[in-house]
Structures are given as structure tokens and as C-alpha cells.
Amino acid sequence: MKADDAVVLAQALTKRFGAFTAVDGLDLAIARGEVVGFIGPNGAGKSTAIRLLCGLLRPSAGRAIVAGYDVGREPEAVREHIGYMSQKFSLYGDLTVRENLQFFGGLYRVPRRELEQRMGLAVALAGLEGRERALVRTLAGGWKQRLALGCAILHRPPVLFLDEPTSGVEPEARRKFWDLIHHLASDGVTILVSTHYMEEAEYCNRIALIDAGRLVAIGSPGSLRRRELGGTLYELECSALGAAVAAANSAPGVIDAAIFGDKLHVLMAQGADTAELARLLGRARITAGPPRAIIPSLEDVFVRLVAKPRDRRSGA
């Protein structure tokens, strides 16, 4: 994609808090209608990156263009064209569903004629028909979340930033929320969403893996799985997982071994033989099932990618 086509564009975007670099040289280009997921552990810099793109924080270096406006120089113009859901739930609990919608619609100066119709759509979107007069604090998490999304899109922003919108929401409600996201994206809304639920990453067109303020990798879930691992992944059921990791790592052809739930995941170089691995495990008195080649999950990819730069650092 050419940079000119990007609805959200970050170039060497950096945010430092004192000596701490929260976002470190982020380069990113998102096309219209794309759903891009920020994936990474807590404290990786996902929220800071989103706040930079919303103009809530000023970049220390680099720049960002959102909906055609420079975030550092024209933050007010950016604000007119984006919707944002912060990590904290941020509607007014003492106001009703309708009053919250009226308030946010008013903040964005949605014309009164249209507001009524759009509020109706937002209520329908949240599945809150008939509960317009309920106080928001009485709603369950999933409804609150969908209502917050409804409030964030009342002014029809072409770009949406959602910072962990589904955290603390039950799985069923999370799935509904993602349906809404895709519905919006199909209307041409560009959406950047952060999450720490790995399975949610699969719902994104592209995933940006973020660790320690840096963009580690970006691509579609499928391409990340194929491209980034650089080998074949095997899964084994075995006893004494801790000892098994050590034994597997010493086997020839093994790139990396890691515990994955109650199983062992072993990444082996393309074409390497698993017989030697089984022999070494046997010698370490570990009872192991046969290694099965599996399709790596995104978590495998992430664990592998985040481990890589650390290996280099400790090796240096």
C-alpha cells in the first residue's frame, strides 16, 4: 500500500516519558476499511500508541497522519474525524442510555434532525431497544461496551480507535462486539483495535504485534503464522514438561521449545528429523507421545517473535 492511500499513517512515531520510551519508532499504514489489531502484553505500548494517534498525547518524535490531518499539528481536525473508546469504561453511569447518546451527539454537534435517527441506530446496534431510559450503570458489561461504541460513532467518524474494548467482557458479548466491528468496517470505517485476547487477533484483517514499544511484526493472521516461524511446529504430549523443554532444546535441528498449556511445542528447522528429538527425550526418562506437526497459533508466533530480540540481546 502506498502511504498516500493510508487513512492512518505513522512514521517513526515515538513517545518518551522521561527516560522511558513507551512507543519506539512506530511505522504503520492502514487502508480504508481495514481492521487492524494491536496485539501485545500489558505495558507493551498499545494504549500509548492509540493515544498518540488520537492526539491525546503529543509525539516526542516522528509523525502521524489520521484521516488526512497531522496529529501533532492539527489535533482538533483529527478529533472531528475519529471515534475513540478508551480502555476504561467511559460513559456516565448516572445518565440514561438516551442521555449519554444525547450528550456525546451534542459534543460532536450532530445536527438535531439527524441525531434522533442516529441514536435509534446506536440503540439498535447495542441491542438496547426498549431500555433507552435505563441508567447506564445498571447495564451489564457487554451492553455498556456496545453502547460506548454506539456513542463513539454517532458523528460517523471514518476512523475508529478502540483500546481494549472487550477486556472484562464475557466471550459471548465479545463475539457480538466483533460482529459490530466488521459491520462498521464493511461500511468503509477504518478500525484500529487493541486487545490482549489472542483469539480475537484472528478476527482482524491484519495484526500488528507490539512488544516493548516496538512493532515486532505486521501481517494477516495467516501470513504471520506461515512466514514468521521459519520452521515446522510439532506438538508433543509428555511428562515432566520443565525437563522436557531443556532436553528438547539440546536436540539437533530444534530452533525453540516451549511449554504450551499442558503440551510441549517444538519448532524445528525445515526438514529436520524428529527421531533424534524422541531419542533425547527418552534418554532424559521423559515419556512422550509422538510429535505431531501442527499449524502454529498466533500465540506461538508471538512467543517466538518476542523471544527473538531477547535472545540476541542476551547473546551479545
Binding site: 488520537c54 492526539g55 491525546l56 482538533e76 478529533r79 472531528e80 475519529i82 475513540y84 478508551s86 480502555q87 476504561k88 469504561f89 467511559s90 460513559l91 456516565y92 456525546f104 459534543l107 460532536y108 454537534r109
Partner: peptide, 13 residues
């Protein structure tokens, strides 16, 4: 503290 201020700040008010 509640977080609503962030939501207001991100609006064009």
C-alpha cells in the same frame, strides 16, 4: 479518575 474526561478530551469540545 472515572475516565470520562479522556472521552471528552478526544472530542472537538
Amino acid at each position: 479518575e472515572v475516565g470520562t474526561l479522556e472521552q471528552i478530551m478526544v472530542s472537538p469540545i
